[in-house]
Design a protein around this nucleic acid. Structure first.
Lengths: 247, 247
DNA sequence: ACCGACATATTATATGATTATTCTTCTTAA
DNA sequence: TTAAGAAGAATAATCATATAATATGTCGGT
């Protein structure tokens, strides 16, 4: 299943949603008040209809709330819907932090091993085939015959889908986003973070119908990612300290 | 056409979002095409502005997609944002199924033990205090001095918050919804599903800073819920079979 | 100091007109 | 006959403007 992360088109409304979403998550309105509808329309050169519809979409994602006479306000960050793919994408694109990525990976560490276990106990032949396809793509990518990140994502997506659980399946959009963007920002993580061998272990366990082994293999795989984030974080921390000493 | 059950809580727009959201998840538009803007406005007696803004909000939640000349369509169910509290609520309120509840609990089974473990390794005094407050409320509810469901929710919410991980914390809105609504539908589950003793074990382990024990205790707790759903499901399945035999 | 009436700013709603997009149908040429 | 292209039509997207509803603050009176 292809996952359109990018909005259907680039209409004025969706463009404004993008712009405002990114502005909001960066904290651009933490100090100054959020503009009124009229103000927004003027600033972005859009009619009030477009402005209002964009604000309504951001309200649906938990980023804004509006009341007459009181104006539109940015919702406290704790109530943003982080599990909305757009919101997560804006945060990772515009306010990237290893901290956020670590928190997300920490959730993956709970979800994905469980997903692998479920897949091992339930996946039918076709579902296992799709996981195998993902692995084949990773191998092909190793020879430069496919896109490594896309192949990796395909593998994890196939495992999530093989659980037969709609909630697990939903997470693939988020993992997709996180993987793509984290690689854009931290080249440290892109390397050969989680080798093909590890992925193969996961597939083998699922194909063998061994939930426990599948969970362990997947856990090892995600843990490796988390560890890489940890070291990257420590290194930037050290770099900051060094900079302070030098400055 | 049977229209809104829930009255506009605030405004025409939000009321329409509710009505349409509920209609969509029930599959009311699986056979017939989704109405055009003008049609919707006529059916619900709202202006086009209100209609369009409601459609935009539902689009933001992944339930609809609109294109000129092509009209507005219901998105395939697989792409609905189940992790949006509103969407989950509509589904559980309007298209309740033990299957869906089981899938959600299956996800809890992955998340909550991990959350308990994180809480055990990280929670500070204040966070533990909030978990304890939840437990106290449950005890009070045992004496009829508090609302049992609200107390249970408070406990789980406090654990999720104690992880210090924003993604875990986000899930509390979903668990909140699922708990409240599942109890409204299946009185089998409301009983003394997960006793106070089990919750106390979780708190003890977290307070003691023992991640492993916290995870096991929480796992047992959620597993109990899942088992109850399983038996309820088996029973309704048996009831259906019996009905078929009788009919 | 409190209370209520009133002014005011801002979102909410309504309506009509225009534009852009794309699906359908018809036409035309090979 | 078929394929390509042009014209038409349906629908959402956008714009513009007007009115209503609703909080919030202000001011006068007690």
């Amino acid at each position: 299943m292809a996952l359109p992360i990018i909005p259907p088109d680039r209409s004025l409304t969706y463009g404004l949603v993008e712009s405002l979403g990114q502005l909001i998550v960066t904290g651009a309105y933490d100090t100054k008040p959020f503009p009124t509808e009229g103000e927004l329309s003027r600033q972005h050169g859009t009619s009030r209809s477009v402005t209002r519809e964009a604000v309504k979409m951001l309200t649906a994602k938990g980023l804004l709330q509006a009341r007459p006479r009181q104006g539109t306000r940015v919702t406290p960050e704790a109530r943003w819907n982080l599990l909305d793919p757009d919101v997560l994408r804006w945060l990772l694109e515009r306010k990237f932090s290893l901290q956020l990525l670590a928190e997300f990976s920490e959730m993956r560490l709970a979800i994905e091993p469980a997903a692998a276990a479920l897949a091992a106990s339930r996946a039918d032949h076709a579902a296992i085939g799709r996981i195998r396809d993902g692995l084949e793509r990773m191998k092909a990518a190793g020879h430069g015959e496919d896109e490594p990140v896309a192949a990796d994502i395909a593998f994890h997506t196939a495992v999530l889908a093989a659980t037969g659980n709609r909630f697990y399946a939903q997470l693939d959009a988020l993992i997709n986003t996180a993987l793509r963007i984290s690689i854009r920002f931290t080249n440290r993580i892109k390397g050969r973070a989680a080798g093909i061998a590890r992925h193969e272990e996961v597939l083998d366990a699922i194909a063998a119908g061994d939930p426990e082994r599948a969970a362990l293999a997947m856990r090892a795989l995600v843990q490796e990612v988390l560890a890489l984030i940890g070291t990257a974080s420590a290194q930037t921390g050290a770099a900051r300290k060094a900079a302070r000493r030098a400055g």
